[in-house]
């Protein structure tokens, strides 16, 4: 009998991380962690440093101060703009991620088939990214991110710009994948339905730090002025103060 293993292992640990670009301080000492099998929704106003945080976790950037601990050699990242290689077909994009494992052609092909059918794109094996719609590109990017069965998956706005049906489909993939693989996930999103449906825990970022943390249900009821404003989209509140 298969029992889902819910270890308490912290897969991602962010501790007092600071990051600046020139004189612009983006992250000002943020701390949180994500455990195995957990899906954390990361929300916050545009430009607050969510994508920057994901780049720190994937070591595309290094923190100025603080530590980023990642307990998995394999990390999958679904990019905000898909970031598929335009000169390669869908198959070749996935094969590129598999390249360093030096698998036999047959094994490689079966993994690619399996991941593409997971996102419902088996018919687009030989299409180029420019021939795909935005939603199909997102799903290809999704398949590419999970091709090596990572134990950590980072989603940067996986449903932004998609129609509600496609959003729901992608949300379902994220939930299904979390249940099947027991991977830790961070879901960065602006879309209300996405974080309420997929996240087990939500972290609200503001001005380079975390200002609220809790479950999606709590998020809708809390008195925290930041979360209240963000969850309901009020114009009045502490967020964006002085900008409106």
């Amino acid at each position: 009998m298969a029992i889902p293993v819910h270890t308490d292992q912290k897969m991602i640990e962010i501790d007092q991380v600071e990051k600046s670009f020139g004189s612009h301080r983006v992250l000002k000492g943020i701390s949180f962690h994500v455990r195995a099998g957990e899906r954390l929704g990361l929300i916050g106003p545009s430009g607050c440093g969510k994508s920057t945080l994901l780049k720190l976790i994937t070591h595309l950037l290094e923190p100025d101060r603080g530590t980023v601990t990642v307990n998995s050699p394999e990390v999958g990242l679904v990019f905000q703009g898909s970031a598929l290689l335009n000169s390669l077909t869908v198959r070749e994009n996935l094969a590129l991620a598999l390249r360093r494992r030096k698998l036999s052609k047959k094994d490689e092909e079966s993994i690619i088939q399996e991941k593409l059918s997971f996102v419902g794109l088996s018919d687009f094996l030989n299409a180029y990214p420019t021939q795909l719609s935005g939603g199909q590109q997102k799903r290809t990017s999704f398949a590419r991110a999970i091709v090596n069965d990572p134990k950590i998956i980072l989603y940067d706005e996986p449903t932004t710009g998609l129609d509600p049906v496609m959003s729901t489909i992608i949300e379902d993939y994220m939930i299904k994948l979390g249940e099947e693989s027991n991977a830790a996930a961070i879901i960065v999103t602006h879309q209300y339905s996405t974080w309420t449906r997929t996240a087990e825990r939500v972290l609200l970022m503001h001005d380079g730090g975390a200002v609220w943390e809790g479950t999606p249900e709590e998020a809708l009821k809390t008195d925290n002025p930041f979360m209240r404003q963000f969850a309901h989209g009020y114009k009045e509140g502490p967020m964006l103060e002085g900008l409106i």
């Binding site: 290689l85 360093r100 590419r144």
Partner: peptide
């Protein structure tokens, strides 16, 4: 263009 559209970052994440 690859740099701006994060294709190079994608390569690095895939450890290519």
């Amino acid at each position: 263009t690859m740099m701006i559209t994060e294709q190079i970052d994608a390569l690095k994440v895939m450890r290519v």
